[in-house]
Amino acid sequence: MTDASPARPLPNPGWGPLSALPGNPLMWVLILSEVVVFTAFFALYAWQRAGDVAGFNAAQQNLDPLMGGLNTLVLLTSGLCVALAVEAISAGGRRRARQWLAASMGLGVLFCVIKLVEYAGKFSAGITPETHLFFGYYYGLTAFHFAHVLFGLGLLALVSWRTSTENVETAAAFWHMVDLIWILLYPLVYLLR
């Protein structure tokens, strides 16, 4: 006699809690790893700063917090455009989503231009990563963030071409991580005394 009980389907392991997040779960793994890396850099910066507060403060006086603030406004507005692209694609507005993505990319490029102008000003004044440990961190942290902005711009361009809800949500998640890192980086490097 054979067992006639119906076969139960195998459980779908999915991605656990990651499956509830918007976009591709692998992007969230990347985002989490990038946040961990930036957190380590921020902790190292804070530790080094605590050892030479006067030197870091004196070096920091050479930065323009208004330039950094302008870049904050530009990047956050770009993040708003990405959020509006997600809203548009969720409502079935592929064309509108692409327009918001284009606006976001334009602002991302503006962020890069402002940052390059700032770098050029520092280098023309003779301020390099070797000038003081603070500038080693300034250039290192902001250039690492800059690389993430460039990657994000490439991702947004790809998503503009291959527009779908999951693709837009995935790119938006990465772009918002770029925003978050800058929101932490700006006060840490430009404002904290």
Rank of each mutant, 00 (worst) to 15 (best):
T163C: 11
L158A: 11
A103E: 01
N167T: 05
A54Y: 00
A147K: 13
W47V: 08
F56T: 03
W182G: 01
A172C: 12
L30T: 07
E169T: 03
F38S: 09
V53M: 08
P25T: 09
T170M: 09
S164L: 06
F38M: 09
H176Q: 13
R8E: 15
L180F: 15
N71W: 01
W47M: 13
L107M: 12
W182C: 02
D64T: 13
N167K: 08
A58Y: 03
A88G: 06
W15E: 07
F42L: 14
V159K: 00
L70V: 15
P25N: 10
V113K: 07
S90D: 11
I114K: 02
L191K: 12
L180W: 13
Q61M: 14
S5A: 15
G23S: 12
M105P: 00
I31W: 05
I114V: 15
D179M: 14
I89E: 05
R49I: 03
F42N: 07
E87N: 05
G68R: 00
L110C: 04
Y190A: 08
V29R: 15
P9A: 13
S78N: 07
C81D: 06
I181E: 00
A54N: 06
L184Y: 15
E34V: 03
Y139I: 08
E130M: 13
H176M: 12
A59P: 03
R49V: 05
L116E: 13
P6F: 11
C112T: 12
K122D: 05
E169D: 11
G140E: 09
D3V: 14
P13V: 11
A85V: 02
L44Q: 11
T77Y: 05
N57L: 07
L116G: 04
A97I: 02
G93I: 03
F144Y: 14
F174K: 08
T165W: 01
I89A: 00
L76A: 11
Y138T: 05
E34R: 00
A173V: 06
T163F: 07
T165R: 14
A143F: 11
L76P: 03
F56W: 01
F111D: 01
C81R: 02
R193W: 07
V149L: 10
F134H: 07
E34G: 09
G51F: 03
T163I: 03
P25R: 13
G23H: 10
G14D: 15
I183M: 14
P65G: 09
Y186G: 04
A97M: 05
L63R: 00
I89R: 01
F134L: 12
G154L: 09
G154M: 09
G68S: 09
S160R: 15
F146I: 06
V117A: 15
V117D: 08
G69E: 01
A85R: 04
V74A: 08
I89C: 01
G92F: 00
L32H: 05
G79W: 04
M105V: 09
W15K: 02
G140N: 13
L44I: 08
V109D: 03
N62F: 04
R96Y: 00
A50W: 05
S164E: 10
F146P: 06
G140P: 07
P11G: 13
A91G: 14
D179E: 15
H176N: 06
T72D: 01
L84E: 11
A43D: 08
G121L: 12
G69V: 01
W182H: 05
G69Q: 05
V37H: 03
T128E: 10
D179K: 09
G69N: 02
L70M: 12
L110F: 03
D52F: 06
N24C: 08
D52C: 08
P11Q: 15
V37M: 04
